[in-house]
Lab assay of single mutants.
Amino acid sequence: SEIVVAMYDFQATEAHDLRLERGQEYIILEKNDLHWWRARDKYGSEGYIPSNYVTGKK
């Protein structure tokens, strides 16, 4: 599975969105859409994140 790191904070506005915290790692579950990826955080929460807010883990 692909691990990404959040470059920016993202506040979830929709129920299906996942909040991003800058510097935290997330697991990508689905990339069915170019701009919104389904991800899981370290607490096990899942939701959609803006793909341009994250970068591949170095």
Rank of each mutant, 00 (worst) to 15 (best):
F10R: 12
Y8D: 05
M7K: 10
S45C: 14
A6D: 01
L20H: 00
W37F: 05
G23N: 06
E14I: 08
E2N: 10
N52C: 15
I49T: 03
I27N: 05
A15Y: 09
R19H: 11
A39K: 00
S51M: 07
V5K: 05
S1Q: 14
S1T: 13
A12Y: 04
G44T: 02
W37V: 00
K57L: 14
Y53P: 01
A12K: 08
D17K: 15
I28P: 00
M7C: 14
L20S: 03
A12T: 09
S51A: 13
E21P: 01
V54M: 04
N52R: 11
A12D: 06
L20G: 01
E30D: 12
F10A: 02
G47K: 00
I27W: 11
E21H: 09
P50W: 06
R19G: 12
L18S: 01
W36F: 08
D9L: 04
R22G: 06
S51G: 06
D41H: 01
R22D: 04
K58M: 14
W37M: 04
Q24K: 08
T55C: 13
R40C: 08
L29Q: 00
Y8S: 07
A15T: 11
E2M: 12
K57N: 11
E14D: 13
G47M: 02
S1L: 15
H35E: 10
K58P: 14
E46I: 10
N32S: 14
R22Y: 09
R40W: 04
V5C: 09
Y48T: 07
Y26E: 00
Y53N: 04
I27P: 01
E14V: 10
E25V: 08
Y43L: 07
S45A: 14
R22Q: 11
Q24D: 08
L34N: 13
S45Y: 13
L29S: 02
A12I: 07
L20C: 03
I3Q: 04
S1K: 12
S51H: 07
T13Y: 10
A12Q: 08
E30F: 07
D9V: 05
N52D: 12
P50N: 07
A15I: 12
E14Q: 12
A12W: 03
V5A: 02
V54E: 02
Q11M: 13
V54C: 05
R19Y: 08
A39W: 02
P50C: 10
S45R: 15
L18T: 01
Y43F: 11
I3E: 05
R38T: 09
